[in-house]
């Protein structure tokens, strides 16, 4: 696990460097028409600063609920949620959240969509646009700043949604199946691109997927979740060297890691 502890040899010891995200013994249930539904049971996960951590699990395992709790939109019933050492239960705005759907606002141009977070934070629209403009190129959106989302391809929409999340300027990004709706080719291109971006930005990423290959390719560490009620049933470090490229998926170590993850997931399916 990479930590930033060594960097602060400055003498003034404030606090030990906290994990960027720490969720401990967290549970959540919902009242539904059919009765009480347990969505998450005693979930504990952590991510160090700058780490790429993925949560993988079957559909409906409560991954999105977990993200809604970490982003502060819903409160957990039990347990702790800490973001950079702060209690994040019911507190919004501590992490950048990219939902499963791109949720670009159809009435805003690409440029106005990506500055949404900054505008909500109280920045003047003109200043926010100035800050966003130079980043459009890196996100493959150059020349589309005045276009409406309806005119964009699926990959472009996802990149715009990710730029919106990045421009919210939080050290932690929560990415909920961001490439789930893309075709295989676009998806592959997005993986390489995201890895490059992550390397440059140095942010902590918590990533949700149900694609084993995607999990191995991108992550430092992978948590495996069970079907409802969602529990953490496994954890796997991915010690593959970086920078990684798509060809790495053909290597023996990669395949072995995939096999391990699939085994953990299948173990769950059999239970």
């Amino acid at each position: 696990m990479a930590t930033a502890a060594g960097r602060c040899g400055c003498g003034i010891v404030t606090q030990p460097v906290k994990e960027a995200i720490a969720v401990r013994g967290m549970s959540k249930g919902f009242r539904e028409r059919s009765g009480w539904v347990e969505a998450l049971r005693e979930v504990s996960i952590a991510a160090a600063g700058g780490e790429f951590v993925t949560i993988i699990g079957p559909s409906g395992c409560g991954k999105s609920t977990l993200f809604n709790i970490i982003s502060g939109v819903i409160a957990p019933d039990e347990g702790e949620v800490l973001i950079q050492g702060q209690d994040a239960r019911g507190r919004v705005g501590l992490a950048g959240y990219m939902p499963q759907k791109d949720l670009l606002l159809p009435w805003r141009t690409v440029l106005d969509n990506v500055v949404l977070g900054m505008e909500v934070s109280g920045m003047k629209a003109a200043a926010a646009r100035e800050q966003a403009r130079p980043m459009l190129g890196e996100f493959g959106l150059a020349g589309f700043e005045g276009a409406y989302p309806a005119a964009l391809s699926g990959g472009m929409r996802q990149r715009a949604a990710l730029l919106r999340t990045v421009l919210f300027h939080r050290d932690i990004l929560l990415l909920d199946e961001p490439f789930g709706a893309l075709d295989a080719l676009t998806r592959r291109a997005m993986h390489e691109w995201l890895l490059g971006l992550w390397g440059r930005l140095g942010k902590t990423i918590l990533f949700v997927t149900h694609d084993v290959e995607e999990a191995v390719l991108l992550s430092d560490r992978v948590y495996v979740m069970s079907a409802r009620p969602g529990r953490i049933i496994g954890e796997l470090a991915i010690p593959l060297p970086r920078p990684r490229h798509a060809e790495i998926a053909l290597g023996g170590e990669f395949v072995e890691l995939k096999r391990l993850l699939l085994g953990m997931l299948r173990g769950e399916a059999a239970a």
Binding site: V73, P99, W107, G117
Partner: peptide, 24 residues
């Protein structure tokens, strides 16, 4: 879900109305 997204950004009720509900 658009309103939820706005909430994760810490949007006020007025911001949600002005930026999402009204244009929608």
């Amino acid at each position: 879900e658009m309103l939820t997204l706005m909430r994760t950004m810490g949007a006020t009720r007025w911001q949600m109305f002005r930026m999402v509900q009204l244009p929608s």
